[in-house]
Structure formats: C-alpha cells, structure tokens
Simulated scan of single mutants.
Amino acid sequence: MGFHKSSMDIQLKNNHVLSAYCRRPTGEATYSELDLNRFLGTKKGRFAWSAENFADNAAGVDLRLEGPTHEPILHAQLNDGTGGCREDKVNLADCIKNEDGHLRYMDCF
C-alpha cells in the first residue's frame, strides 16, 4: 500500500525532500521526511528509481495529489543529456511506504 493512504499533509520541501505526517499502527501520526535525492535520479530525461540526485537535473519540480485516490505524482522538466528538457512524472507511492510512521524507500523495480 502506498504511503499516501496512511499519511496526511504530504508536501515537497526544497524540491527534493518529501514530508508527511504518517499514521502508525497505534493510530497516532508522526512527522517524517525522506530525501528523494537518495533514491530517485534521472536517465535521458526520465525519472529513474535506484538512482540519485534527480533535483540536480530538474526544473519546475511539483508534487501533485492526483486522481480519486490522491496519488502523489512528482512532475518536473528533466535535462535529457543533450541540452534539452523533457517533462516527466513519477508516482512516489510506487516505491515509498509508510513503515510504522516513517517514510521509507523500498526497492520496487
């Protein structure tokens, strides 16, 4: 289950730090942050999990909660390595979970 289903006040700070209040099994919520630059990078103008430092190659970074289930979608213009930019997006819920009130990256691909 994606972290967004058990978290609230989901935000992006400094274009690369995901923050949220994550519900624990006891019902209480704790504040948690996760630096996406540690797990998310780019390859040829596309987001890439298990890479690093996507923010170094990104402009117009924006986190939006989309669709009926409020999926956390990260949008950005990414350097494609040839001097151009390409718009891409990634669903953060694919690889980030709420583990006992803490945002955690999980190998997903």
Score class of each variant (00 low, 15 high):
1 M>K: 15
2 G>L: 00
4 H>K: 06
5 K>G: 08
6 S>Y: 00
7 S>D: 02
7 S>E: 01
7 S>K: 02
10 I>A: 03
11 Q>G: 12
11 Q>W: 07
12 L>F: 03
13 K>V: 14
15 N>R: 05
15 N>A: 08
18 L>S: 02
19 S>P: 05
19 S>A: 11
20 A>R: 00
20 A>T: 06
22 C>D: 04
22 C>H: 03
22 C>G: 08
22 C>M: 09
23 R>V: 06
23 R>P: 03
24 R>C: 12
25 P>Y: 05
26 T>V: 13
27 G>Q: 09
27 G>Y: 04
28 E>P: 01
29 A>C: 14
29 A>Q: 11
29 A>T: 13
32 S>A: 06
34 L>E: 03
34 L>P: 01
34 L>F: 07
35 D>N: 15
35 D>F: 07
35 D>M: 10
37 N>C: 14
37 N>F: 08
38 R>F: 08
38 R>N: 15
39 F>N: 00
39 F>T: 00
41 G>N: 04
42 T>F: 01
43 K>N: 13
43 K>T: 14
44 K>L: 04
45 G>Y: 01
45 G>V: 02
47 F>L: 14
47 F>K: 05
48 A>T: 12
48 A>P: 04
49 W>M: 06
50 S>G: 03
52 E>T: 12
52 E>H: 06
52 E>M: 12
53 N>M: 06
54 F>G: 01
55 A>D: 14
55 A>V: 13
56 D>N: 12
56 D>A: 13
56 D>M: 09
57 N>F: 09
57 N>H: 10
57 N>Y: 12
58 A>F: 01
59 A>E: 11
60 G>P: 13
60 G>A: 15
61 V>I: 09
64 R>A: 00
65 L>W: 01
66 E>C: 13
66 E>P: 07
66 E>G: 11
66 E>V: 15
68 P>S: 14
68 P>T: 12
69 T>Q: 07
69 T>D: 11
70 H>M: 13
71 E>R: 04
71 E>L: 07
72 P>V: 02
75 H>M: 09
75 H>P: 02
75 H>F: 12
76 A>E: 01
77 Q>K: 09
77 Q>V: 05
78 L>K: 01
78 L>Y: 00
78 L>R: 00
80 D>H: 04
80 D>G: 04
80 D>V: 04
80 D>N: 15
81 G>Q: 11
82 T>W: 13
83 G>N: 13
83 G>V: 14
83 G>D: 14
84 G>P: 14
86 R>T: 12
86 R>E: 11
86 R>C: 08
88 D>W: 05
88 D>L: 12
88 D>M: 11
88 D>R: 08
89 K>L: 07
90 V>I: 15
92 L>V: 02
93 A>E: 05
93 A>C: 07
94 D>W: 00
96 I>C: 03
97 K>S: 08
99 E>L: 14
99 E>F: 08
100 D>Y: 10
100 D>E: 15
100 D>W: 10
102 H>K: 11
102 H>G: 05
102 H>D: 06
102 H>L: 07
103 L>K: 04
103 L>I: 10
104 R>C: 07
104 R>V: 08
104 R>W: 03
106 M>L: 12
106 M>R: 12
106 M>V: 15
107 D>G: 10
107 D>Q: 11
109 F>L: 15
109 F>C: 14
109 F>Q: 13
109 F>G: 14
